[in-house]
Design a protein around this nucleic acid. Structure first.
Lengths: 119, 119
DNA sequence: CGGAATCCGAGCAGATACTG
DNA sequence: CAGTATCTGCTCGGATTCCG
């Protein structure tokens, strides 16, 4: 949302289609919160049909710097994190269906969380 | 959580009391997610009583930089944001209790969102 | 000590319908 | 166009209980 408003001023519907996967309800709520916090400025033109513009305030723009730091980090480490998740998930779930009423029959390990145990 | 682990390695209960207002359930969930993403390393000592240590991985430490950027921003602008919220809220709710079955009797404005309207 | 399992209520978010 | 209002499913999180 903030990044979309960072590139240019947007109208409501314009903002919705730019973000894509967001409901109109959540879009309104989020905009209201950002406006309440003073990060976004809302400007209403009483025309027919109505026109409402949303733009970042100076405070909102000042958030772009630390925000971009987070985004850069996420982009840079995204693949690493996905790999870590794959590794983790592979260690958690059993290869086949486990039958606990007939234990140790299918060669499953008694306890799953065996990683990183010292001793 | 990450900041707490940034200062030193923590055990489970130690981590809980350091953070303070967090349930044991959410603490576990959060730690599992961070472990899954490869940000936190979990080390179990099979002693009696059991001992589990949590520490940041290099990946987790690399997140501290952009994270601190956000935190610094929040600390610096916290008062400004609180003030913006007060101003916003004061414009939203009516001074006294509103009686809609007897409209416009108590001098309330017909529509509340009158701010920033051009025209 | 370090959890897992269960129950349950509050709040979030999607879908839909309506409006000035 | 730019919302508001309402209903509803679902997830989140707290509290509690139990365990090796």
């Amino acid at each position: 949302m903030l990044l979309t408003l960072a590139e240019k001023v947007h109208r409501f519907t314009e903002l919705k289609s730019a973000i894509g996967d967001i409901s109109q309800r959540v879009l309104t709520q989020t905009l209201r919160q950002l406006e309440r916090d003073g990060l976004v400025h809302r400007c209403v033109y009483p025309t027919v049909p109505p026109k409402v513009e949303y733009r970042l305030t100076p405070l909102g723009q000042s958030l772009l710097n630390p925000l971009n730091g987070m985004i850069q980090w996420a982009l840079y480490h995204h693949e690493t994190i996905k790999a870590a998740r794959d590794t983790y998930d592979r260690g958690q779930l059993a290869p086949q269906v486990m039958n606990h009423s007939d234990p140790l029959t299918y060669g499953e390990r008694p306890q799953a969380r065996r990683r990183d145990v010292i001793g």
